[in-house]
């Protein structure tokens, strides 16, 4: 169980939070301008990035506020948390330079 830094409450246990999937997927400006395939992209397709991933979280058992996070899906480490209204994730230079956690494959 990780500690997740809620932007409003500070570090709290992971089980206070709910996951919200990929961030920066805006509701289409005009859904009716999209064909079915483009609409399906919005409804069903989300990035499944291996590595740093901009995603949404909500502090469900706390302040109930949504926020965005940049998290490494391999190490699970949170690289940054930021405002849900931001248009883009923070640049990597704003995030810690190197992930602290290295996944070690002892079997190799």
């Amino acid at each position: 169980m990780q500690l997740i830094a809620c932007p409003w409450c500070g570090e709290r246990e992971e089980n206070e939070f709910h996951y919200g999937g990929q961030a920066h997927v805006a509701y289409p400006q005009d859904p009716y301008a999209l064909d079915d395939e483009q609409w399906a992209e919005y409804v069903f397709f989300r990035d499944n990035t291996k590595g740093p991933f901009a995603e949404r979280w909500v502090h469900a058992a706390g302040c109930r506020r949504w926020f965005n996070a940049l998290r490494d899906t391999v190490t699970h480490e949170f690289l940054a948390v930021y405002d849900v209204r931001a248009k883009h994730p923070p640049t990597t230079s704003a995030a810690p330079a190197a992930p602290r956690r290295k996944d070690q494959e002892a079997s190799r």
């Binding site: 169980m1 990780q2 992971e14 089980n15 996951y19 999937g21 499944n48 990035t49 291996k50 991933f53 995603e55 998290r71 899906t73 391999v74 190490t75 699970h76 996944d103």
Partner: peptide, 9 residues
Amino acid sequence: YNGYGQRGA
């Protein structure tokens, strides 16, 4: 959450 780390909480 999404995760490729082969470990859970």
